[in-house]
């Protein structure tokens, strides 16, 4: 109980004092997970849309693959990315292992299936006749897709929340490909693991509160956009 109280007090102390290391870790977490979510959306939105709207022979296979990807354990992603980026690995020459870029790559692999899969299911929930109606009103294919995205705004923003939530909170992949290096690849989740393993519960709780606060604020903004006029 004392640990918890100490932790909360320490958290406020760190928050209000603006501890440079905590600020750096927080900013890196936001930067890495924000970028990973953005990249996932850039690829996931069009690919999910394509799978939802276009019928082609191997479509079911790709949908199954994406759905499986939504349940990928972060440590498995971390392992795969490690193998590829390892010094002797196929992409070792890029010297990305233990860099923030490596964490971004791993987090994109975690968030992308979620963005694509949830886009796919969001669009499939719409009345399929709506597409015909939009084309019948003279919409170009691109205009049709934009209107469909607007119509599926609620579940699409839910997809964005889920994608960001999954990467800001994952620890396995960040730890494996980032290495949790102080001043370089330490993010909130890896820092919490480290502090806990050192028995420094107060710091761990402080960092956890910051992590929860970030998750809450991001969700608050997205939810207010999502629920506008509803």
């Amino acid at each position: 109980m004392q640990n918890l109280l100490d932790g909360i007090l320490k958290a406020f102390e760190l928050l209000f004092k603006g501890d440079p290391e905590v600020v750096r870790i927080t900013l890196l977490s936001l930067e890495v997970s924000g970028l990973a979510t953005l990249i996932s959306l850039i690829f996931g939105l069009p690919i999910g849309t394509f799978l939802a709207l276009v019928k082609f022979p191997t479509r079911r296979f790709w949908i199954s693959l994406i759905n499986t990807g939504m349940a990928l354990p972060p440590v498995v992603v971390g392992l795969v990315v490690c193998i590829f980026l390892w010094r002797n690995g196929p992409l070792g020459f890029m010297h990305l292992i233990y860099t923030p870029t490596a964490i971004v790559i791993a987090q994109v692999l975690i968030a992308f299936p979620m963005a694509a899969g949830l886009t796919l299911s969001s669009l499939q929930q719409l009345d399929p006749k709506l597409r015909i109606q939009l084309l019948g009103l003279g919409a170009s294919k691109i205009q049709m897709v934009i209107i469909l995205w607007k119509e599926a705004k609620l579940p699409l923003i839910a997809a964005l929340i889920a994608a960001f939530g999954s990467v800001i909170s994952e620890v396995g992949a960040s730890m494996m490909v980032g290495g949790n290096l102080l001043g370089s690849t330490r993010v909130l989740t890896t820092a919490i693991v480290l502090e806990t393993s050192k028995g420094l519960f107060a710091s761990a709780i402080a960092l956890s509160i910051i992590l929860l606060l970030i998750a809450f604020l991001v969700n608050l903004v997205l939810t207010s956009i999502q629920q506008r006029r509803h």
Binding site: D127, K129, L130, I132, Q133, G136, L137, G138
Partner: peptide, 9 residues
């Protein structure tokens, strides 16, 4: 062409 379907959509 313009279209009107059974469901107003």
């Amino acid at each position: 062409v313009s279209t009107v379907f059974q469901s107003p959509l």
